[in-house]
Amino acid sequence: MDKNMNILIVDDYKTMLRIIRNLLKQLDFDNVEEASDGSEALAKLRAGNFGLVISDWNMEPMTGLELLKEVRADQRLKNLPFIMITAESKTENVVAAKQAGVSNYIVKPFNAETLREKIEKVLVHA
């Protein structure tokens, strides 16, 4: 697993971005960039070189699901590992995310161990 890869974390709660960044740092991922909604994330993804996206679902104006669909529709980004971290835990949400091509799904509140496990799983299959 390349711990030097660039990771984009997307959430409209600054505190949540900070928490995820700190947890990633403890997992030895130091190259972390942030975006506060799907639109900003998409612009950063198209302009940069990322190995993983970790995104919230419920954001304005572009949700995490719409971001995921845009990523999967983009020729250059379509294979990018994409983990959804969200409080949306209904079956219909998980199914919609899976159908849109999510790599894995973490329900909030979560712990560092779950984050590590999901990242490892996603990157092994990338």
Partner: peptide, 27 residues
């Protein structure tokens, strides 16, 4: 309404929320 917006109803209440194990099993 984008699908993501239409489905954005969380967080679910503890009594009805799925656990991480439920999500994993569904996936």
């Amino acid at each position: 309404v984008p699908e993501g917006r239409a489905l954005a109803n969380g967080p679910q209440l503890p009594a009805t929320a799925a656990s991480q194990a439920d999500i994993d099993s569904l996936l």
